[in-house]
């Protein structure tokens, strides 16, 4: 996904996105259940979801797992990549399957990424692999405390 081409959304698309950011039911025909208050039928809702996913408007539709509760670990990390070497460093970092997200940000620490691993020990291992591949120091920012937030955004 890039931020240049943005697909246009109609009111129904927005209603779907706003209504379905959580609470999808666990029952035999869940799409039919959530379609009704949106004024859609099951097939129409499924077709819309398929399109929104294909367009990249939705990155996923399904359960959002809290990886730490499943024995895994996540960690925010950052490094300062020299501008002239930025693309090579980005490619080295992105090559690791443990790197789930990676963003360029405006700061001396100009590359911020999230490591996601199957176990807590995987985090320092991944950081070391990145340091070995790039020759740069990786700063780890584990969450020490998570404050309650509502992650939903209105479309």
């Amino acid at each position: 996904m890039n931020d240049r081409a943005r697909p246009s959304l109609d009111d129904t698309d927005r209603a779907i996105i706003n209504a379905l950011q959580g609470g999808f039911p666990l029952c035999e025909h869940p799409y039919a259940v959530v379609a009704e208050p949106l004024g859609l039928d099951e097939a129409a809702l499924i077709a819309r979801l398929e399109r929104l996913l294909a367009q990249g408007v939705l990155t996923r539709f399904g359960p959002m797992f809290q990886i730490e509760r499943l024995g895994g670990a996540f960690c925010l990390a950052a490094l300062a990549a020299p501008e002239e070497d930025y693309e090579r460093v980005a490619a080295s970092v992105n090559a690791l399957p443990q790197v789930a997200h990676n963003y360029r940000r405006e700061h001396a620490l100009n590359m911020w990424f999230v490591l996601a691993t199957d176990s807590p020990e995987g985090i320092p291992q991944a950081a070391q692999e990145i340091e070995a591949a790039t020759g740069l120091t990786v700063f780890l920012f584990p969450k020490e405390k998570e404050y309650f937030v509502d992650m939903r955004l209105k479309a």
Binding site: M1, N2, D3, R6, P7, L9, R14, I16, I17, L20, Q21, G22, G23, F24, L26, C27, L49, L52, Q55, G56, V57, L58, T59, R60, F61, G62, P63, M64, F65, Q66, R69, L70, L153, A155
Partner: peptide, 27 residues
């Protein structure tokens, strides 16, 4: 369904639903 419900109950699933791309919805 029971196992997914149990994971929701104990917080292993934060929620079930649509995950929008922030950029695509205007943010």
């Amino acid at each position: 369904m029971q196992r997914l419900a149990a994971m929701v109950e104990r917080g292993a699933i934060r929620r079930i639903g649509a995950v929008p791309n922030h950029y695509a919805i205007g943010y």
